[in-house]
C-alpha cells in the first residue's frame, strides 16, 4: 500500500489518461458520405487515483469515449495519451491489463455458456497470470469474495442465467479485478440494475477503490450518482465536454445552462424547496446534424446572438474557481 501511495505522489503530474480533441465519426449508410459525429472534439484529463464522472444524456457519446480509451473504438482524429504516451504506440494488451472496463448490462456482458468460475479465470489465462490450476483458482475465489459473492464455492459452477443482475455485475467486477488493474472504466455500471441492488454494487466498487487505490471513471446519466461518488465531473453534450470541474463546483455552482437544466430536473426529496424546473425543449439533436455555433443553442434558455454563430470551442475558466471550466459565452474567461 505504501508503495502505491508513493507512486501516486511522484507521477501525479502526468495524468493516467489525457484526451485531446478526440473525434469519432461513424459513416451513415446510404447518405452520400454523411457522418455522425459521436465524439466531436473531446478534451479530458483523468488523473491517477481520481474518481471521474462523465455525465450526459443517452447518445451524447459518453460510452463511445469510454470504449475509445481502451482502444475498443477506432478514432477518427485527435489524441489519447496513456501515461503521456499515445495509445496507438502503446501495447494494447498491456493497457487493457492495467485498465479494465465494467459494462452497462450484466445480462449481456457474460458469456452464457461459461460458468462463474470460468469467467473469473479467463482474464488470468489470457494474461498468463499465476500457475494453471490451484493457484489461479485461489485468485479467482479471492476476487469473487472481494466482489461480495461469498462463499465463492457456492457460485463457482453456476451459469449466468442462474444469477441475479446484481450478482452478474459482481462477477463482471470480479473478473475485471482479477487482473489487479490500476484503473476501472465503469460504463453505467448500475443503470440496468434494480434500485435495491444498486447501492450494494456501488459499495463494492467504492470499497475496491479505497482498498486498492483504483482510479475510476463513472459513465452515467445520473448527476446525483456522480455527485455522490466522483471527485471530478465532466458534463458531455453532443460529443463534446461542456463543463468540467470538481463535483462541488459542477453540482454546487453549475455554469453551463445545460448542466443547470440537468440539475434542475433531479428529483428532490424535499418538494418544498423545489427550484424552478428547467425542462429542456426539444430532443438531443442528431449527431449527424450538429447545430452551428454553440451546439446547445437551439435548446438553451439563455442563448443570444453570438451563440448562433460562434462555437465556444475552448472551455472558459470560471473566475475564482480553480479547475472549473465551461464551454459557454456567458462564462467570463
Amino acid at each position: 500500500m505504501a508503495d502505491r501511495e508513493h507512486d501516486v505522489s511522484t507521477t501525479a503530474t502526468t495524468p493516467l489518461f489525457e484526451v485531446r480533441d478526440l473525434q469519432v465519426h461513424f459513416p451513415i449508410r446510404r447518405s452520400g458520405g454523411q457522418v455522425a459525429r459521436a465524439l466531436d472534439g473531446v478534451d479530458l484529463e483523468w488523473r491517477r487515483g481520481e474518481v471521474l464522472g462523465i455525465v450526459g444524456e443517452s447518445g451524447c457519446g459518453k460510452s463511445t469515449l469510454g470504449r475509445a480509451l481502451l482502444g475498443l473504438q477506432a478514432t477518427t482524429s485527435g489524441e489519447i495519451l496513456v501515461d503521456g504516451e499515445p495509445l496507438e504506440d502503446a501495447d494494447l494488451r498491456a493497457v487493457r491489463r492495467r485498465v479494465q472496463m465494467v459494462f452497462q448490462d450484466p445480462y449481456q456482458s457474460l458469456n452464457p455458456r461459461q460458468t462463474v468460475g470460468a469467467q473469473v479465470l479467463e482474464p488470468l489465462a489470457i494474461h498468463g497470470i499465476g500457475a494453471r490450476g490451484a493457484d489461479r483458482i485461489a485468485r479467482g475465489v479471492a476476487v469473487l469474495e472481494a466482489a461480495g459473492l461469498r462463499p465463492a464455492a457456492r457460485f463457482w459452477d453456476r451459469y449466468p442465467h442462474e444469477l441475479s443482475g446484481g450478482q452478474r455485475q459482481r462477477v463482471v467486477i470480479a473478473a475485471a479485478m482479477a487482473l489487479q488493474p490500476e484503473a476501472l472504466i465503469c460504463d453505467e455500471p448500475v443503470s440496468a440494475l434494480d434500485v435495491s441492488v444498486r447501492a450494494q454494487v456501488l459499495h463494492v466498487l467504492m470499497t475496491l477503490k479505497r482498498e486498492r487505490g483504483l482510479s475510476l471513471i463513472f459513465i452515467t446519466h445520473d448527476l446525483g450518482l456522480a455527485w455522490a461518488l466522483c471527485d471530478r465531473i465532466a458534463v458531455m453534450y453532443l460529443g463534446r465536454m461542456v463543463e468540467t470541474g470538481t463535483a462541488e463546483q459542477v453540482i454546487g455552482d453549475p455554469r453551463h445552462p445545460y448542466t443547470k437544466a440537468l440539475l434542475s430536473v433531479v428529483p428532490s426529496p424535499f418538494p418544498r424547496d423545489r427550484v424552478r424546473r428547467e425542462i429542456l425543449a426539444g430532443e438531443l439533436p442528431d449527431a449527424s446534424r450538429i447545430p452551428t455555433g454553440c451546439r446547445f443553442h437551439p435548446r438553451c434558455p439563455a442563448a443570444f446572438d453570438r451563440c448562433r454563430s460562434d462555437d465556444p470551442r475552448t472551455l472558459a475558466a470560471v473566475a475564482g474557481a480553480d479547475g472549473h471550466r465551461a464551454a459557454c459565452w456567458l462564462v467570463d474567461g
Partner: peptide, 10 residues
C-alpha cells in the same frame, strides 16, 4: 457485449 468484454480483458 461479452465479446467486447473479452476484448477489453485483453
Amino acid at each position: 457485449q461479452f465479446v467486447e468484454r473479452a476484448k477489453a480483458l485483453g
